[in-house]
Write a protein that binds this DNA or RNA. Structure first.
Lengths: 196, 196, 196, 196
DNA sequence: CATGAATGAGTTTTCATTCAT
DNA sequence: GATGAATGAAAACTCATTCAT
């Protein structure tokens, strides 16, 4: 039991170290020793807990996705979505996505990194596909409460996620303030209100 | 004179070889020798024509961007945008972007790759920034012909490009047909018609 | 503890391997793999113990200089310089320098190599400057015991070292016996006796 | 005839370019293209005039040695050594050697470079041996005019050259002024006056 | 004679991974 | 479990040399 806990703690420590490393270098250029140094452990340990560098990455991706899903659950847990008006609901969703995801530059960077890896790595691609599918589904479900047409709700979800990811992308390339990101996001939000 | 031609031909040959390589491996994992093999030349040649691997990449990015801008110019040259109705104009723009860019899976892959490199490479980031700025501006200008509010036109342009890029991203992760991409694109187009 | 010992042993093993290599090839033409082969270790080891080829060289130079200074200390430790006559003292100094330094062909070769590297490498130049400064100072101090004029003692030291180094140089270029090196050295020694 | 002249001119141009290059980089690190660039010619030309990089070096060494011998001849041609007193003669010799050789830092650098190459290259070593032999002989001959003992004259010559070369060496390693080079040289000259 | 494109051997360096202690 | 020494494959890059034009 205690063993288990130590193991889990160590693994998390390593995954968080990778997270920090990815803010500086690509996964490819990040060495096992870089991660070990960041985690403050001996590099041999990484091979004890994970059988290869790719294994670390795969676990890291699960960790990142699970982490932001937990944030979403937590955020939703604190609201009474059942009794909110359509307008209140949309405002809440946008507030969360804008602040925690689209405008979270460091998260955006990590996702760009993961997308790129997914291009050539089927396992990573699978994880990404699943994460986006769930995101679209969850969002679709929420939207469905305020709309009749289920297929339309799904399509709107897809469009919303695509737009948000596109904006997130811009945030990694343009310096803050150089694009009227806030206005565009607000305009988009307004449009979604009208549509739903 | 002939020398000049050989130079240009070889350089293009190398850039096209990199293009082919990037459909299989990341730039980081693509070695100079891989590119040389693909181009059917000795690896030393690559160092003769470009002073470093990064130099090849930078030239490649210019080549890719210039290539699709040329396609856009060519496409526009064939239409009479001046006398088209707003509806016709929108249809044309979408037809081009959807087919040549957003749904061009191999182009999308390359851009995901470039985005990732841009995360850590300022020169690449600069090129990307410029390319997207020009795209947004060109689109904004076209939209401005059918709309009063210039700032709004610009914001719509940004949103459109963000959405398209988000959809392009999905196309690299989801197998064709698994997301109702066509429907979503059509719905988005419809919405833009209403807005403008 | 044992670890520490292995580290030091390996480092020394590598420096001695470089020493052997330099009897055959210039430092520039000696590859990391050559040194590894000579040391009987994998070439990766050299990068484990030293961060670059230059680092190996710098450590090697320290090692060589320290080595012959240790020899000088050892040699001096065995004599009673305090109670020797001027003549005895000069004879002892010359006996040491002639045999261990000036006529030590393999040491002379190494120093020619180091001089050349110093031409273009400031770090090496600094080490050389320090070594010669200390040699001149140590010698000057010894001479000072038998002479009044301190500035003169220093100048004589400089001249002596210059002469010895010039002779050492000849020993690397001329086959033994082709120059009356012994006689010249003896004549010089005689002259120094007269001067002091 | 004209052909011959153009050829000679080109060869000299290349050798002078190498001379310039050697003030910046070692021969080993100087590439054929570096020399060509410095000479302002195409690098292919170097292989037309010299069959290899080593061939350039060998010719360069001849050129350098011949050049300073010519200077010596020219300098001697301008004096009436026959009718000078011993003192005048010594002053003249020292004036020439000190200024043109020992304290000529760029010449000293080149000689250090050549010594080092001679360590591993028998052809270069042979050239150097010959040059020093001739220098010692010429000097010995001049000294012989003022001294009886021929063997002694030769030994003094060797010692003088060794000392000068040692001082030249110091000039490449110590910044000008940090060693009392002038004083030492003057003291040495004084001593030689006394000896002869 | 001159040019510059092409070759290929060789260099330093990095790094995931293994394994004895 | 933890450590760090060792391995060896592979990378980018350099460069003397060759040779067709």
């Amino acid at each position: 039991m205690a063993r288990r806990k130590v193991q889990e703690k160590r693994r998390l420590q390593i995954l968080k170290a990778l997270d920090a490393c990815l803010q500086r270098k690509s996964f490819e250029k990040t060495s096992i020793k870089d991660i070990a140094r960041e985690a403050g452990v001996n590099h041999g340990v990484l091979h004890y807990y994970f059988k290869s560098k790719e294994e670390i990455l795969l676990n890291y991706i699960d960790y990142v996705i699970e982490d932001y899903r937990a944030q979403a659950r937590e955020w939703m847990g604190g609201r009474d979505l059942e009794h909110s008006t359509k307008r209140e609901f949309i405002d809440e969703v946008f507030a969360f996505v804008n602040n925690r995801i689209t405008l979270n530059k460091s998260l955006s960077r990590i996702f760009v990194e993961i997308w790129e890896i997914a291009l050539y790595n089927p396992a990573v691609r699978g994880k990404l596909r699943e994460a986006y599918t769930r995101w679209v589904e969850d969002l679709g479900e929420m939207i469905s409460r305020h709309i009749e047409d289920k297929a339309f709700a799904r399509n709107v979800s897809i469009a919303m996620v695509a737009f948000w990811e596109g904006m997130a992308l811009f945030s990694t390339v343009f310096p803050p303030g150089s694009l009227a990101v806030g206005d565009v996001l607000k305009g988009f939000q307004q449009r979604i209100v009208e549509i739903l």
